[in-house]
C-alpha cells in the first residue's frame, strides 16, 4: 500500500492514505466531498483548507492531530497499539498501526508538508478501555502512556485531549482553522479551541 507516499511537489495537495468518503451523515461536517477519512492504522496530512480530516470509531485506539495555524497544514494519525515490538513484520508494512512509530511519522509528514514544529497545536482523543479489564491488557491506557512518553521526550505539550472511558469517538480536524470536533455517545463537542 502506498499510504505514506507524499506527492513530490509541496505545492500539491499533500494527502496521505486518506480517501474521500462517499456518504455518511454524522453530526460532523455533513459535506462528504470536503472530508478526508483516516482509517484505523492510517494517517493523513493535508494543506487543503476546504477540507476536514475525519476518523471514525476510536475505541482503545488513539487519534492524534497536529495543526500549524500559520501554514494551515494539518495531519491526523489513528494508531491501534502502543508498541511495534509485538509485531515487527506488521510494523514494517504499516508503521501507522503503532504509536511508537506512527507519532514520529505524523510529525515528519506534516513538517515535510510545510508546518513548523514550534507552531504545532497537538490534540488527542480515544484510548478507551474495555470494561472490567483486570489490569492485564489495558490497551487504551497503554496507548495513552506511549503518547505521553513520546511527547515528554520531544518536549511537546498536548493542547487538548479527550481520552479514556468506554465509549467510541469520532474525531474531525477542520483544515481552514484547526478546530477539532469530537462526536461521542450521540453528542458533538468542541475539543479545540476550548
Amino acid at each position: 500500500m502506498s499510504r505514506f507516499q507524499l506527492p513530490g511537489s509541496p505545492s500539491t495537495l499533500a494527502s496521505v492514505g486518506a480517501k474521500d468518503e462517499p456518504s455518511r451523515s454524522l453530526g460532523i461536517d455533513r459535506n462528504a466531498r470536503e472530508r478526508l477519512v483516516v482509517g484505523v492504522a492510517d494517517l493523513a496530512v493535508s494543506k487543503d483548507s476546504s477540507k476536514s480530516i475525519v476518523t471514525y470509531a476510536l475505541g482503545s485506539c488513539i487519534g492524534v492531530t497536529v495543526y500549524d495555524p500559520v501554514a494551515k497544514v494539518g495531519g491526523m494519525l489513528h494508531f491501534m497499539l502502543p508498541e511495534s515490538t509485538v509485531s515487527p513484520e506488521k510494523a514494517a508494512a504499516n508503521p501507522a498501526m503503532f504509536g511508537d512509530l506512527g507519532i514520529p511519522m505524523l510529525f515528519q509528514k506534516v513538517i515535510e508538508a510545510g508546518a513548523r514544529r514550534e507552531r504545532l497545536v497537538v490534540c488527542a482523543a480515544g484510548g478507551a478501555e474495555v470494561l472490567a479489564d483486570d489490569g492485564h491488557f489495558r490497551i487504551g491506557h497503554r496507548n495513552r502512556t506511549i503518547l505521553r512518553k513520546i511527547f515528554w521526550k520531544q518536549n511537546l505539550l498536548l493542547a487538548a485531549d479527550d481520552t479514556g472511558g468506554q465509549h467510541s469517538r469520532t474525531m474531525s480536524l477542520k483544515l481552514a482553522d484547526g478546530s477539532i470536533q469530537i462526536r461521542a455517545q450521540g453528542k458533538d463537542s468542541s475539543l479545540w479551541p476550548r
Binding site: V40, G59, L131, Q166
Partner: peptide, 14 residues
C-alpha cells in the same frame, strides 16, 4: 481492539 464494529456501545463489554 482492532477498532471493528464499534457503535454507540463502544467498549462497554468486559
Amino acid at each position: 481492539w482492532a477498532g471493528l464494529g464499534l457503535g454507540c456501545d463502544g467498549l462497554l463489554y468486559p
